[in-house]
């Protein structure tokens, strides 16, 4: 028999937070994967919402590409509000 598919599990810990990767598990289909994720990763009230994603559906960037992917953003400080000087006394900006 083929290997049971691998699923990556993401849990939203509380309302208002984003889903965070917590680990992986095996399940033959999505319905079981979701329930297995509930039983395995939320035994201690760790979550209010779960995503399961087939591991094969995740396309990961390679560490070799890290510079090309992420360094170009490093010199674009003007994207952050702290780049700008605000004259004294200006409120609500």
């Amino acid at each position: 028999m083929e290997q049971t598919p691998l699923w990556e599990v993401f849990v939203r810990a509380r309302r208002g937070l984003s889903h965070t990767h917590v680990g992986s598990l095996h399940a033959p289909d999505a319905e079981l994967a979701l329930r297995n994720a509930r039983d395995l990763y939320t035994r201690r009230q760790e979550g209010v919402s779960i995503w399961v994603v087939p591991a094969g559906a995740i396309i990961a960037s390679s560490p070799d590409e890290k510079d090309a992917f992420f360094d170009p953003a490093a010199d674009k400080v003007y994207r952050h509000p702290t780049f700008y000087e605000v004259p004294d006394g200006v409120a609500h900006l």
Binding site: H26, D39, L40, R43
Partner: peptide, 11 residues
């Protein structure tokens, strides 16, 4: 039958 199911049945 599967380790995940062991956990589910215990729950």
């Amino acid at each position: 039958p599967e380790m995940e199911e062991d956990i589910a049945l215990t729950n």
